[in-house]
Design a binder for these strands. Structure first.
Lengths: 230, 230
DNA sequence: CGGAATCCTCTTCGATACTG
DNA sequence: CAGTATCGAAGAGGATTCCG
């Protein structure tokens, strides 16, 4: 094996920028290939199985996924965990180093949003990520957390026929693709209303007043969550 | 021409993620190909000619550079300007949309820095970008600008046998690869000292006390600049 | 000399098929 | 479920050539 610096390359020479001094070039050696950042984004929504990733990333071929996961794992950005029986499945999750990419990915997504066609949020994971993106926002990237004293358990959000989970913990939002069995609160709404809430076109108070959302459990926590979305 | 949404694709179908709703996927369609972000980083240091870019990005072939520039221009991230005679040269520079990528690129570079081998800043543009990266920092990304009342003209920084320019304007740092003819101040130092200053291992006051930097002009402004680097 | 287009080789990607 | 194997198509790298 020919290793050049701490960055792990494959046995056969990968295509690299070969600038081991340059943080940007090295970051791009690790993340710059096709699909890699989209895989990381999927994993920002919690640990996922190989098949979850394959299903969530339409167009990504299975050999590429395997290769990318191997590369990310080798370099300490994700790691594999074997779930205990009866689940007996292997899942991939981000390491702390991988988690640090969240603000960056959110920023990139918000930058790219001006080029999108404006329709949005047609899929659970996209919905969860949109919520994270809005909450983190361009100005909140690793900056002061609003209302840092608020602490909630995990809430479930039902949007049309799919569910996501959200947890607001000390001002930090974690969204998950897989909601918990026992959420502390549940909100049910339509894709259209959810999109308006996330995009800030409708406030939480307005949605509640218009009976556009149905709530069970500790409503104050959900209101606090959506209140932070512009 | 087959256009799908506002994103401009080439006549022959480019490889795309084909998720016109997803800000991240669209951003990666624009920026995710090899060399593209490195080209943008070069342009963060001011307008550059084709040849400057070709020289600054070792390993990038001329056909790729031409193709990337065309793609970036088509999508409004950079634009070409013809300099008036006698210069009579065309330069590429970032549009405001392209400029917005600075915090993102800085963040990515800082994230990648842990994988570098630690030696650093061996080239003018790398030096300039390192200064920007440190000044913007992980916590200062589009956040509160420190000492926003400070305003300077453009300073020249001579490091060994090359020069860069720096301007601190209302707390926002602009670094340029090409220093102005009439800088308001000049600081001269070695690559080693400069690296220590940028990396925060040496304070400006220490460097001045140790006569490790030589200063002409308005020293207070330079001190203010380096004082912001940790 | 600046700013590319062309040609050729090699690598990577994408789709499908197949295996423990 | 979690990958590996294979193969044609597209993209990247390098050298050379062309044009003003």
């Amino acid at each position: 094996m020919f290793l050049r610096g701490p960055l792990q390359l494959s046995p056969v020479a990968r295509r690299t920028y070969d600038l081991p001094d340059c943080g940007l070039a090295v970051a791009l050696d690790l993340l710059g290939e096709r699909w890699t950042l989209l895989i990381v984004r999927e994993l920002l929504l919690g640990p996922q199985r190989y098949t979850d990733l394959n299903d969530g990333l339409h167009g990504l071929s299975t050999n590429l996924l395997a290769e990318r996961l191997r590369h990310l794992e080798t370099n300490g950005i994700i790691h594999r965990t074997e779930l205990p029986p009866p689940a007996a499945s292997t899942v991939y999750e981000l390491t702390p180093i991988g988690e640090e990419l969240q603000p960056l990915i959110v920023q990139l997504a918000l930058w790219g949003e001006r080029f999108t066609d404006g329709r949005s949020v047609s899929e659970p994971r996209a919905a969860a990520f949109a919520m994270v993106a809005r909450h983190c926002g361009p100005d909140a990237v690793s900056a002061a957390a609003p209302a840092a004293d608020i602490r909630t358990g995990e809430c479930r959000i039902d949007i049309d026929d799919y569910s996501i989970a959200a947890q607001l913990d000390a001002g930090r939002l974690r969204a998950r693709a897989h909601p918990p069995a026992q959420p502390v609160a549940v909100v049910r709404t339509t894709g259209e209303v959810y999109r308006s809430l996330v995009n800030g076109q409708m406030s939480w108070a307005e949605a509640v007043a218009a009976h556009a959302v149905h709530v069970e459990g500790d409503i104050s926590q959900l209101g606090a969550l959506f209140g932070h979305l512009r």
